[in-house]
Amino acid sequence: MSSSTPAKRQKQRKVLLMGKSGAGKSSMRSIVFSNYVAKDVRRLGATIDVEHSNIKFMGNLMLNLWDCGGQDGFVENYLTNQRTHVFGSVAVLIFVFDIESREFQADVISYSNIIRALTECSPTAKVFILIHKMDLVQLRLRSQLFEERAEYIRASSEGFRDSVDFFPTSIWDQSLYKAWTQIIYFLIPNAQKIESALKDLADVIDARELVLYERTTCLMVTHVTRGAELSNPYTDRFERISSILKTHKQSMAKHTSLPPNAANFAELHIKTGRFMFFITRLTENTNLAVDIPPSEQVFNAARMNIMLARPKFAELDIASKAKAGTQGVGGEDSGDRDGVAA
């Protein structure tokens, strides 16, 4: 193993989570990162000052999440005394708007103050806006209201006007996972390399689709889709699977009375006449979901090949080693496939 190489340094990325008090920042964080279910968030109290959490993601990526309490007093403090401390070296700012807020104008003013501080201290940061609690709006009004709000907020985004991304979210459905998947994808430093390695793997095992999930959060890292699966009508399937896996994890934890972060399955198979599907561990922090044609041979060969590809992906976790890893996966696995087929 190349554990001694200097390349294995942790890449810390600072993520600010901001928004008005009660907008749902901590609820969101607890669901995505701390194995809460939507119902449990009622127990959460107001966040005092800043709560830091470090989340390890795909080996070398360390998320340094700052959940910033949204009460006016705290925000005032961030913008004055702690300005450089809070807004310095930020990789991503996630700003949460409450769709039900009665003082939308005031929220936007507070938002532009924060944007100004961000422009000053970390002008290269990326801004994501989550318009939250969308479940409270009637279904037919949702997209229209979302667009209106998004336009209004964009207009006060100053330097970030062109780069800011908007997502409608709710903790009660998979939209939360959709938004966070995009955010995580932005933060992963070697996403393209992982993707190309996955693509090689998919070709070798003749998979219809491969989806790489982070283990604890069940957020999608990336996916590869081939052939007919491209026309799968369920375009929200990645978020849906995130949400399915997360719910199931809860229920397993409850039943086995293990702590939620330990109740992992080693493998999940689903075989039907139309497709075969399994989820298995790929690296220390990731699970791989595999969708293949319904055939026992393909299934067994795929499992074998994924097992053999594991060390290569483990190396891929270390950014500078990625190149060697990518080639290794393709080369070695095609060999294996020949072996199995023969």
Binding site: H269, T272, G273, R281
Partner: peptide
Amino acid sequence: AGNNNAESLITMER
């Protein structure tokens, strides 16, 4: 393969 009835299995990690 003759496997028309769906089947599924979960293996625990620990």
